[in-house]
Design a protein around this nucleic acid. Sequence first.
DNA 1: TGCATGTTTGGCAATATGGCCAAATATGCA
DNA 2: TGCATATTTGGCCATATTGCCAAACATGCA
Lengths: 103, 103
Amino acid sequence: MQDQRRFEQRARVLKALAHPTRLFLVDELSRGECCVADLTEKVGADMSTVSRHLARLRDAGILVDERRGACVYYRLRVPCVLDFFGCVEAALSADDGDGTAGP
Amino acid sequence: MQDQRRFEQRARVLKALAHPTRLFLVDELSRGECCVADLTEKVGADMSTVSRHLARLRDAGILVDERRGACVYYRLRVPCVLDFFGCVEAALSADDGDGTAGP
DNA sequence: TGCATGTTTGGCAATATGGCCAAATATGCA
DNA sequence: TGCATATTTGGCCATATTGCCAAACATGCA
């Protein structure tokens, strides 16, 4: 397992994405930047929780943040993450995980 | 957050990929099917550990397994997962996480 | 059947993750 | 400065993940 470092780096990015709320945030931000307060309202969790999710995506290189006045705005830094989901859905079609068969 | 179910399903797939050893296994299997014993040797961990990683990828719909005789062979079911990594590297170029600056 | 090989599963301890509340920090404005 | 709003961080607990060992299971062959 020689390229261990590389796999660890990749895993860190995928791990950052591997959470329903964080996927929701990425999806929201794919429509344009947004501040923490607005995202918090959409998610419906504590702002501290949302802030931590955003920080995690930022630290993984997926988002960028920018403070403008009192608000901090986040936006996608790597829009290609959205391309993942077609493939992810392909995996889901074999295993939708909730017992309901696919089409 | 209406499409919660969808985000949970996607997260399950990404979570299955989000581990260095499992990424290594996917990478190995991208070169063709392989049995658990051979993969175990390449990974260098306990076979029970490797078996669990493989099962997790299979349950996520990423791999398929097939028993032939005494051996169980795994192979990629969703080769498009490999397309992820170009994008993942793009995220890494901003944050390689180990303090060494990118090129 | 009995044994060897290959694989999965049960159980356990160490560690990581997730979410909330409270407190700290940052900014704008009176 | 002092207060209100926006965001992050510390602390804590509940839960999930990971990896090993040992034990169970599956298969092929003598």
